[in-house]
Computed example of a mutant assay.
Amino acid sequence: MKKNKINIDKLIYLDQRIVVNEFQQKTSIIKRDKDYTLWVDINNIKPVDLYCYLQARFGKPNGMQSLFREYDSSNLIHWDYTFDYEGYRITIMCMTYRIEIHKSIDFQDQKYAKDEFIKDLKDDFRNYGKKISTFRTKVETWHLFINPFKRIKTAIDSNFVELDNLKINEIKYPEFNKFNNRTKKEMSIAGEKFSKANTLGINISLTLPIYAEAFINFLIFTLAKVNAYENKEDYESFIRSPINERMRNLHLKCKHFHCAVDYNNNEACKEFQSIMNIRNEMLHGNVNPNTNHFDTVYFDDRTPLFAKFTDLAFDSYLASQTGIEYHTLLTRYESIQNFISYVLTCLELNAAKQIMDMLDEPYPGWNPKTKRLGKLFADKAIDFQIDIGKKIKIIN
């Protein structure tokens, strides 16, 4: 007769040696109903709560996959438990994206049985509340956050690709002595490209110094001798000080610097400061005809005297790129990379390597208790569905 639900009080935690032996022998004494049904759950129970409950009630994971897992966070299956249930086997395993419950038990209503099983487990948490709380004290808390340095770098690189694809420098000056519909269409296309290039160029120009400042602030957050949690006022004062001040004080305020940053004399630092100055001019919308002029025209009273015949419309397109040309921006980008490289050479070798690894991590973890940064997961998560070798009915 098909069952209605699982009685969680009858779950028996197996010695892992039994689990291994049954796997090796593929023993036939284990009860199996005709259909193999896989229950999948994503939103009805928190994996951390279920894990702590199973640890508190039964002990360490005893499933087969627990023997194969590497001592890191990049496993296909992170933990699994195998139980005896009236001669049947029930395995609960946690993947990266879901909980899977494997068993060979027929139920009158599989969806109902699954929902009741999870509900009963959650209701049983209160019976092990003290043990669960004790175990939770051993569990580390890590907050995933967005690395501003990596995010800004990704945006800059994307903008550079878009800008390069526009091929602005390959747009030819129109032949206005042969002005026709074709020329008009070419001018329209050129205008759209220059408009897009102008937007991208301004974005890159304004963002490059922010990219460098994100690097500086990442260093301070990671290496500061007094962090924001110990002395907020001192930390905030340092992080908000002018760039040149911050750079000169890095070796005094932060750990693992084997020498001071020679901000006033190093060429990479000088170039970076120049880029900061350009950014400030743009940021404040300063008007400067001396640096932004693109042509000269003479007037005798109200009579224009041209030095050469040009097309003001097309020349204005060209002028929109002044100071934000692709190669100009690329040179500034390289200058900032040189600046970052120079500052890293002022760090002790091991510290520099760790900082470089963390800078490249888009979603690092932060442990608020130990004040540690960490890379919690591999760059790519792998997922799969176990093939049991027979038709499987999956209940979500």
Rank of each mutant, 00 (worst) to 15 (best):
M1Q: 13
M1C: 11
N4Y: 12
N7C: 12
D9G: 07
Y13V: 08
Q16V: 11
I18K: 09
N21R: 15
F23W: 08
Q25S: 10
S28K: 09
I29P: 03
I30M: 10
K31S: 00
R32V: 04
T37I: 09
W39S: 04
N43L: 13
P47T: 15
L50S: 00
G59C: 04
G59S: 11
N62C: 02
Y71N: 14
F83P: 00
I90C: 07
M93I: 04
M95Q: 14
I99A: 02
I99H: 09
I101Y: 02
I105D: 00
I105C: 00
Q110T: 07
K114C: 08
E116M: 15
F117Y: 01
D120W: 01
R126D: 15
N127S: 02
K130C: 03
K131S: 10
F135V: 05
F135C: 06
K138Q: 15
K138T: 15
E140W: 10
E140G: 12
T141E: 13
W142M: 04
H143E: 13
F149C: 05
S158W: 14
S158K: 11
F160H: 07
V161S: 08
E162A: 15
N165V: 10
L166N: 03
L166C: 02
E170M: 02
I171G: 09
N180A: 01
M187S: 06
A190F: 07
K196L: 13
K196Q: 13
N198Q: 14
T207I: 00
L208F: 07
P209N: 06
I210C: 01
A212S: 09
L219R: 08
K225A: 09
K232D: 11
E233S: 07
E233F: 05
E236K: 15
I239V: 13
P242T: 12
P242R: 08
E245P: 03
M247F: 11
N249K: 13
H258R: 06
A260Y: 04
N265P: 12
N266Q: 12
Q273E: 11
M276A: 01
N277P: 02
E281Y: 04
E281R: 03
G285C: 01
G285M: 05
N292A: 12
T296Y: 07
Y298G: 02
R302A: 13
T303Q: 15
P304W: 00
A307E: 13
F309H: 10
Y317V: 05
S320N: 04
S320I: 03
Q321F: 04
I324C: 06
Y326V: 08
Y326I: 05
L329K: 05
E334M: 03
Q337K: 14
F339E: 02
S341A: 15
L344V: 01
L347V: 02
L349D: 12
N350E: 14
Q354P: 12
L359G: 07
W366G: 00
W366H: 05
W366T: 04
T370A: 08
G374Y: 01
Q385I: 15
